[in-house]
Simulated scan of single mutants.
Amino acid sequence: MSLDTVVEDIREEAHARAEDIRETGETRAEEIESAAEADAEEIVAEAEAEADREIEQLREQRLSSAKLEAKQKRLEARRDVLGNVREEVEAELASLEDDTREELTRDLLDAASSEFDEDDDVSVYGRSDDRELIESILADYDGYEFAGEYDCLGGVVVESEQSRVRVNNTFDSVLEDVWEDNLREISTQLFDQ
């Protein structure tokens, strides 16, 4: 074997090895590129899924906020309507006709008088516009006298020093009790169609 042949063999062997290395490198590069593309596709898919989740969550939050705001506005509107109804009832009570006002005032005074002893000195307070009415009713009661004005829609506040009892039988207090006891029914009649 000559030196040229050995050099040629080494050269061919080096070219063959270089070709193998190149092919292995290309194969490896393709594998890396393919894996990188798969990873990139997976990252994009995860990012899209996360974006979709965030969009859905944001949509649900906004929808929930909108529903809550609508509910609050509905409740405010209902409160306003109930307040208006209450004001109308109070206006009706304040403007009751004489006979009806006298009958109700007498009933409220009768109910309050059951709380006092016969020998008690009883003070009766009422609306300033009802002073004459109350004084005329008190003519039927021994030991009872009109003691002054009380800011109310009508009715009476009755008290006695001896028995240390005070009874609030005003239209306002009766309305408050009736209103509280029947608020659910009132709301149902006004709002549930």
Rank of each mutant, 00 (worst) to 15 (best):
4 D>V: 11
5 T>M: 12
5 T>W: 09
5 T>R: 14
6 V>R: 15
7 V>L: 15
8 E>L: 15
9 D>Q: 13
10 I>H: 05
11 R>A: 12
11 R>V: 07
15 H>T: 09
16 A>M: 06
19 E>I: 00
20 D>F: 09
21 I>D: 06
22 R>N: 07
26 E>N: 12
26 E>L: 14
27 T>M: 02
28 R>D: 11
28 R>S: 13
29 A>P: 03
33 E>M: 10
35 A>V: 08
35 A>N: 12
38 A>L: 07
43 I>S: 08
43 I>Q: 09
45 A>P: 04
45 A>C: 10
54 E>T: 04
54 E>I: 07
56 E>Y: 03
56 E>I: 06
57 Q>G: 09
57 Q>W: 10
58 L>G: 03
58 L>Y: 03
63 L>R: 12
65 S>L: 14
67 K>V: 15
68 L>K: 08
69 E>W: 00
69 E>C: 06
70 A>V: 05
76 E>N: 07
76 E>T: 07
79 R>H: 11
80 D>W: 03
80 D>A: 12
80 D>M: 03
82 L>P: 00
84 N>G: 13
85 V>I: 12
85 V>H: 04
90 E>D: 00
92 E>N: 11
95 S>A: 15
96 L>N: 10
97 E>L: 12
98 D>Q: 12
99 D>L: 13
99 D>S: 14
103 E>T: 15
104 L>T: 07
108 L>C: 08
108 L>T: 13
112 A>G: 10
113 S>M: 14
113 S>K: 07
114 S>V: 11
117 D>L: 13
118 E>G: 07
119 D>P: 02
119 D>S: 15
120 D>N: 09
120 D>G: 01
121 D>F: 04
122 V>G: 01
123 S>K: 12
124 V>M: 02
125 Y>M: 05
125 Y>F: 15
126 G>R: 08
127 R>W: 05
127 R>Y: 04
128 S>P: 00
129 D>W: 00
129 D>F: 01
130 D>W: 09
132 E>G: 11
134 I>F: 05
136 S>Y: 00
137 I>T: 04
139 A>C: 06
141 Y>V: 08
143 G>E: 09
144 Y>E: 04
144 Y>R: 07
144 Y>A: 15
146 F>M: 09
147 A>T: 06
149 E>F: 06
151 D>I: 07
151 D>G: 12
152 C>Y: 04
154 G>P: 12
155 G>E: 01
155 G>R: 00
156 V>Q: 10
158 V>L: 04
159 E>W: 02
159 E>T: 13
160 S>T: 11
161 E>S: 10
162 Q>M: 06
164 R>T: 03
165 V>D: 03
166 R>N: 02
167 V>G: 03
171 F>D: 02
175 L>Y: 00
176 E>Y: 07
177 D>S: 14
178 V>M: 09
180 E>V: 08
181 D>R: 15
183 L>Q: 06
183 L>H: 01
184 R>F: 06
185 E>R: 11
186 I>Q: 00
186 I>H: 00
187 S>A: 04
188 T>R: 14
188 T>F: 08
188 T>L: 08
189 Q>A: 08
190 L>T: 04
191 F>L: 04
192 D>N: 10
